[in-house]
Amino acid sequence: MDIQTIKERIAVVESKREYLLSLLEQPNLGTLRVDVNQALEEMDDLLDEFRRTFPQTGSN
């Protein structure tokens, strides 16, 4: 897999983060709030690892 493909896939992942944040604003989320928080934490870890691995490329 080349770096451009990885960057494109990371951009897709980043775009989903906003959706997860909007879910946290829903008052009827109930116990799913824990899962959404976990997904956000793991996504942030993935994005941080990508930036550490490819510091010169950023996210785009």
Rank of each mutant, 00 (worst) to 15 (best):
19 Y>P: 00
41 E>G: 05
17 R>W: 03
20 L>S: 02
57 T>A: 15
12 V>M: 08
44 D>N: 07
51 R>D: 03
7 K>V: 07
44 D>E: 06
31 T>Q: 12
5 T>S: 15
24 L>R: 01
56 Q>Y: 09
35 D>A: 13
26 Q>K: 13
18 E>H: 04
59 S>P: 08
4 Q>L: 15
39 A>E: 01
43 M>S: 06
36 V>F: 01
54 F>H: 07
57 T>W: 14
14 E>S: 12
42 E>D: 12
36 V>L: 02
20 L>M: 06
40 L>Y: 00
21 L>G: 03
39 A>P: 00
45 D>W: 11
36 V>Y: 00
56 Q>P: 02
37 N>R: 10
38 Q>K: 12
50 F>P: 01
2 D>N: 14
30 G>P: 01
23 L>D: 00
9 R>H: 12
14 E>W: 08
14 E>K: 15
16 K>L: 05
29 L>H: 02
26 Q>I: 05
54 F>C: 03
39 A>Q: 06
42 E>W: 08
28 N>K: 14
4 Q>I: 13
39 A>I: 02
51 R>W: 01
8 E>Y: 12
44 D>V: 04
10 I>H: 03
52 R>I: 11
7 K>F: 02
49 E>H: 13
25 E>Q: 12
36 V>W: 00
32 L>T: 07
4 Q>Y: 13
28 N>S: 14
23 L>E: 00
13 V>G: 03
10 I>N: 02
17 R>D: 00
41 E>N: 07
35 D>I: 06
38 Q>E: 10
57 T>Y: 15
54 F>Y: 14
40 L>F: 00
16 K>E: 00
8 E>P: 06
16 K>I: 00
9 R>Q: 13
13 V>R: 12
39 A>T: 04
45 D>F: 10
27 P>K: 04
12 V>Q: 11
52 R>E: 15
32 L>N: 14
55 P>V: 10
14 E>T: 09
35 D>S: 13
49 E>S: 14
20 L>R: 01
33 R>G: 05
24 L>V: 01
37 N>H: 11
60 N>E: 15
4 Q>P: 06
19 Y>Q: 06
21 L>F: 11
3 I>H: 10
47 L>G: 04
44 D>M: 03
36 V>N: 01
25 E>S: 09
33 R>H: 05
9 R>L: 11
42 E>G: 04
11 A>R: 13
35 D>Q: 11
19 Y>E: 03
33 R>V: 06
19 Y>S: 05
44 D>A: 09
2 D>G: 12
21 L>K: 09
15 S>I: 03
14 E>C: 12
2 D>P: 10
47 L>F: 08
50 F>D: 00
9 R>E: 12
32 L>M: 13
47 L>W: 03
59 S>F: 15
36 V>M: 01
20 L>Y: 05
30 G>E: 05
48 D>C: 11
55 P>R: 11
52 R>C: 12
18 E>S: 08
46 L>T: 09
9 R>W: 07
49 E>G: 11
33 R>W: 04
44 D>I: 04
9 R>K: 14
8 E>I: 11
32 L>A: 12
14 E>P: 04
57 T>I: 14
7 K>E: 06
4 Q>G: 10
49 E>F: 13
34 V>T: 13
38 Q>V: 08
6 I>L: 13
